[in-house]
Design a protein around this nucleic acid. Sequence first.
DNA 1: TTGTATGCGTTATCAA
DNA 2: TTGATAACGCATACAA
Lengths: 340, 340
Amino acid sequence: MPTDLPRRKRATIHDVAVESGVSRGTVSRVVNGEKYVSAEARIAIEAAIIKVGYVPNSAARSLVLQRSLAIGFLVHEPHSLFVEDPNIGNILLGANQTLSLADYQMVSLIIDTERDTERVARYLSGGFVDGVIVVSARENDPLTRLIERLGLPATFVGHPPDLRQLPFVGINNRGSARAITNQLVATGRKRIGMVAPAMDRDSGSDRMAGFRDALGDRFDPALVASVPFYSFSSGLAGMRELLQRDPLIDGVFAAADSVAAGAVEALREAGRRIPEDVGIVGFDDSSWALRTQPPLSTVHQPATELGEAAARSVLSQLRGEEPNLAGIILDSPVVWRASA
Amino acid sequence: MPTDLPRRKRATIHDVAVESGVSRGTVSRVVNGEKYVSAEARIAIEAAIIKVGYVPNSAARSLVLQRSLAIGFLVHEPHSLFVEDPNIGNILLGANQTLSLADYQMVSLIIDTERDTERVARYLSGGFVDGVIVVSARENDPLTRLIERLGLPATFVGHPPDLRQLPFVGINNRGSARAITNQLVATGRKRIGMVAPAMDRDSGSDRMAGFRDALGDRFDPALVASVPFYSFSSGLAGMRELLQRDPLIDGVFAAADSVAAGAVEALREAGRRIPEDVGIVGFDDSSWALRTQPPLSTVHQPATELGEAAARSVLSQLRGEEPNLAGIILDSPVVWRASA
DNA sequence: TTGTATGCGTTATCAA
DNA sequence: TTGATAACGCATACAA
């Protein structure tokens, strides 16, 4: 039987004060590293803190300070996306890094069900976080409305069309899609198709718009296969369909690297050589891009930097600065490799 | 210029009480859905709540209740792993699902630097969470020690060797590795190698031990390529090395599907057919397993279920039940496909 | 059924 | 430089 050490009650400032023979006020000053406390008091108190194992209670501190020093990171994704999307991890890491430097604790909340939505709403309303970063909000998202109502400092990564008065960071999906399609055209391809994922999101439809921009008159709706997700299997299915619709296709824009990887597999199945028979380009420059054979030409999405920028944006709001409602757009250059 | 609606101060119970003409105590009772409150009072209060936009302050509630109704989910991973590991997402989702049903808010904290460790320590100590789920703790982890000292209800996913008195959930890595290696042997392979990732973690070394168990006398250390991470590129490098060491190799155990996928690529480079020339098996049954050509034979790791079990374990501790220190081991059956 | 009063652990104001 | 003491917003025991 394990030694059943009774979980001692947490020591409070009061305990430290008693132990060291000073008042609670003085202890508080030491804990917060303020000036105007005598050397001897400080020494006695520091010893007492260790002795009684004091650790400050954040709930009490939040209550009086009216802030928690924590920032929420909301992820609102269907299962598969959260598990497969390589960008989200980097956004998370970038945001955490910046918040960490400012001594803010980042807490990620994942929203997966209706029930989650309500609980997270309570969490946000309750003062557990001072601000929030939101990735992949959907259009008409109840949490977006809540954040607006609460006046909670927030920054979105990407911008759902109904965002209106809230700041966001993002990339120029349309312009980058246009740019890489242009480069694909420049390689001399004649029949260029697109595997178009996630048309229900702004990122998806914007990339499609850019593709269309670049092709102009040569755009052929019959050469666009719309697929639901940013995923490998979506790419596999989409490319198979495209090959069936037009076996002579010689260029493909797969609007996410994971999708492109699936498309590459479908092309290989069909015995097409890359880039000799068909040139293919992706989007994201995620780890997928270097896994295909040959490596993908793609658009570099600065995921880490997006996280950092979002974090900086909420921190600046916390300092009382006016948020940039026009949005912060980061560069997303084409990186050309061997797949086209 | 946007209409600058001044962010109203948050309404309190007091405001509701004034608005509805009753005492704060009664309001509190309504908010918490208690009995013994007259219908008319309830109606008036509910109207007032909506009118003033009252939402309870969780910090204050935590303080008096001495609990936060939140559970931490600690992720302690080097960058690359967090971004690439497909299991962690499922563990997260499983845990969130179970906690959500119990009306607990799961908050994920990611630990990436020394600074993060200290901040998270403060966060855990400060009463922001009632318990914690820890994935991928390392040996000699300061947070493990902290959790012990705090007596914070906790459950680990996987078990660092120095865990001692803390409950955990996991799978039988060694047994499953042995089982799948045995099946590989049974296909008639004569020269079987292993790409062995993450030997510095218990999961890595246990899988290696199982491989060795299965091979017995036929185990040849020269046919083991140790690689640092559970990643595609590790698999690629490891398999290339193995092929160089022994071009006649005809069977491979790559101890994670991501690693196996990399190995498949290396084999393809080398012109080896799968499974005709060499049979390969993986571990995890992650989405990688269905992306290789042919699909991987592997060990099914019940990631979602591990998350659920971990969540159930901390919840039971919160109810005051004694934790199962012997560990909860879930089934991880071999799933045989076409790669061997 | 309702109101009053007290305490949860901190910080901050004001005298001393 | 230090010590009282009053908030912070809520729940609850007790009285009414």
